[in-house]
Amino acid sequence: MIRFRVRFDKHGKIRFTSHRDMARIWERAIRKVGLPVAYTEGFTPRPRISFGLALPTGYASDGEYLDIAMDESVVGADGAVSGTGVASETSIDLIQMREQLSRALPVGMNVQAIEMIEGRPGSLQEEVVICTWRFEIRELGDIEARGAVADVLAADRLMVTRQRKGRETTEDIRPAVLSLAVKGEGETGVELEADLAAKPRLVRPSELMAYLAPDHELGPVTRTHQWIEQDGAPREPIPGPATPAPRAQRRAS
């Protein structure tokens, strides 16, 4: 079994599809391209693809990830993959695969990079520890936003209550706020950027709203980066264009 890690983005109308929808969209795209993906055993074999942390429905992303497993027999020594499906009898390299998948995906989704992964990597869901978000707060001014950000960063606790398995639980998400800053003017209001911990659970920008601007609505949200930890330092699951990594996993202050 050989694994490939794929980074793709999700923008525009398609961002209103759910995590479940994404799985189906990808399965169809893979079949359309005819990728020789490995299948699970059992009565209803499914393609062996595994997704990263779910992106909340309605949020856009510059960097989503999934891992695709293929049978070793179809991968040549040079790393070229021979297709057996629609694009049969040809040998496709990773650039070609990227282009084919992008074409097979709906408008608003593009494959940015594909990388073969060595050995047995951990699952994306377990390994991603931080996500970087850009989000807007509708009709909020820059000055108020800076004040609210300072208050949030100065707070000892940020208690949020949420429904979990039918029960209300209250927890402090202050430790998950690793950085938070005003970036400037967005399309619908002020734009902010935050590094939020994804462990022990994914904290979303919407959860900060009660503290940042309780009387305002959250505008467009984009997950710009996801970070895994390697040798104590954060890096992207596929290194992208140079981006400064979150300085540390310690909480920002």
Binding site: K13, I14, F16, T17, S18, D21, R28, T57, G58, P106, V107, G108, R138, E217, L218
Partner: peptide, 18 residues
């Protein structure tokens, strides 16, 4: 668009079908 985050299964309203 601004109404969609407030409703269930917003993908029903985007079109975008193949």
């Amino acid at each position: 668009e601004p109404l969609l985050p407030r409703v269930q299964k917003p993908a029903r309203y985007i079109g975008c079908e193949d």
